[in-house]
Design a protein around this nucleic acid. Sequence first.
DNA 1: CCTTTAAATTTACGCGCGTAAATTATAATT
DNA 2: AATTATAATTTACGCGCGTAAATTTAAAGG
Lengths: 343, 343
Amino acid sequence: MREPKIKNMDEFASVSGISRPTISKYFNDPDSVRKSTRTRIERALSEFDYRPNIYAMNQNRRLTKNIGIIVPYLADPFFAAIARKIENFVIEAGFRPVLLGSHGNPAQEIGNLENLRTIKPAGVLMAPLGRASDKQAIAAFCDDVPTVLFDSHLDDLGEAFVGHNNVQATAMICDYLVRTGEPPVFFEMKTPTNPNAIRRRKTYCDTMTALGFAPHLIQVDGEGWDFEEIGFREGTRVLSDHTLQSNTVLCSNDRLAIGFLSAAYQLGLRVGLGDGCALRVAGHDDHPFARYTCPTLTTVSQDYTAIAKKSAETLMHLIESETRAESRIETLFDGKLIMRGSA
Amino acid sequence: MREPKIKNMDEFASVSGISRPTISKYFNDPDSVRKSTRTRIERALSEFDYRPNIYAMNQNRRLTKNIGIIVPYLADPFFAAIARKIENFVIEAGFRPVLLGSHGNPAQEIGNLENLRTIKPAGVLMAPLGRASDKQAIAAFCDDVPTVLFDSHLDDLGEAFVGHNNVQATAMICDYLVRTGEPPVFFEMKTPTNPNAIRRRKTYCDTMTALGFAPHLIQVDGEGWDFEEIGFREGTRVLSDHTLQSNTVLCSNDRLAIGFLSAAYQLGLRVGLGDGCALRVAGHDDHPFARYTCPTLTTVSQDYTAIAKKSAETLMHLIESETRAESRIETLFDGKLIMRGSA
DNA sequence: CCTTTAAATTTACGCGCGTAAATTATAATT
DNA sequence: AATTATAATTTACGCGCGTAAATTTAAAGG
């Protein structure tokens, strides 16, 4: 078995006793040939070592089986995890995922799109950087390639958007924090990189007002994607100042909260909701590291399995129907309250 | 500018006034054409929107410009960071990086190799899973494609190996811990996934013996790549048992240490080297999160910039010289002691 | 069994580019 | 300016596959 090396589809057609066009059809879609033919091909495939030349295939097919996946920051375990989920769904659907990270850099994000253009992808799943993104360039890309956005909403770019319900999730944790202690202040970056952050801020303000409390925003300086560093640095400053209007701090995301908790620890402040605790801290996202902070981080989870699945499915559907979306579909998944030690 | 859409190299040859074979030569290697010709091509390139069809190029070239990069676990920020460094060096050298993660799964690792085979890469940079890797399959791949291993040494697979000097690094931190307090016990997994872990264990034992102390290994159960979870679970067990032979624990890697620190925190044990501290904990790797643990983690850094650079350069050199390595080159980079709060 | 319908085959062409050989043009050297 | 080395051009073929049209074969239905 696997004796003679088959070098092209012609040879494989000979040894399998099937005509080349039928073989070609099979590789394009195994279900498009008769069952008896399919089994004959697959038997030959297990007997001889042949796989079609991917370059020759893609050169002539009007659409490749490539699916681009772009995330803003691969070194963030959250995005690594969601990218992996998406990869699996894409493979399941018979496509080839191509994973690219933008490293928090708008130029790299556009570079990734250019890169994807050259491989003529059937579609793209993209989590944009957000505020820093070159929207015009992305829009131009979306015109040419069916694109589904996830995680970060960008105007009305792409055929669809799948993301997290920041309003529901933020309202829920605000409500929880108010119910179980002092009303929280909101700790965030002054100029957040991400539209999710904007929505979380707004929902915090709305929820606090609705509950009869004055919202307090702590908007700190900082650029880029080194959120833990910013949370630590500015957390240290804020906690040393003793200017906090509450003993409860809701951070705009878990990575800021991780830095903030580290700052609190170094200042000797005990964080939690029991007696003897000076501070409560909560986050947002349920970051993979949130269960190992000291104390463990109370947060709201994103249903990233659902987000990954839905966005992949939406794109696959778009590709298979060969139609562009008549109207832009937006899907949001609710978060769940994850109660841990910090609040 | 960018008016007429150029659809192939023939058209671009016409509008630029250069013959197609010369254009082809230019795209293969810009330096292979005369300078005056190069500038003419580049001027035309900025005037017309054309880029060669990557599939047609790769179909006919005996070697593509693709470089595969395989890491064992993309959701680990350490590997994400080193992969990114490598990507940049690869791009700089004029190649196209293709990043794949094995998700801690040997089957996926082999799948990644199969995947890479179909794109006929010029070379591959691979950090194998280690013990779980299917060495035979990897060896077969290395026979066909120039491959440089990094991070994890695997017998004598690949053309070269570039990694961390575990012996130097472990000896250094052992020495430091002994000098500044009680001799450490070594906390590790019973069946480590990674050859680095084996070397660290051995060096710990050797160093302790050389310094006149009895080595103590704490070898805990646990499978897979969820090191923080294992460190937390087994750390909790070990600390509750009160069976530790020393107040100083050297963890085999930072991710175990992160879990261990979380366990110590939850048990109310103060970690650090000052008075009133019950425990010292140190790690190994200088993981991106090590600066945000509570307390911050004392560890030994890997020089992963040097590792990334050297492994990429080695591969590029191999590819350009079109020779397989006459002998296997192994390069190790020393670690640096990173003194923080935990030890 | 014959008819209808679906699927496989044959034939033939095209995709966009690499590349080799022979020729011609250009640049460098004396 | 003549010579030589180097680079560009022309011509022509091939890569491995997609795909369309016409034809033949096989399956399904009565």
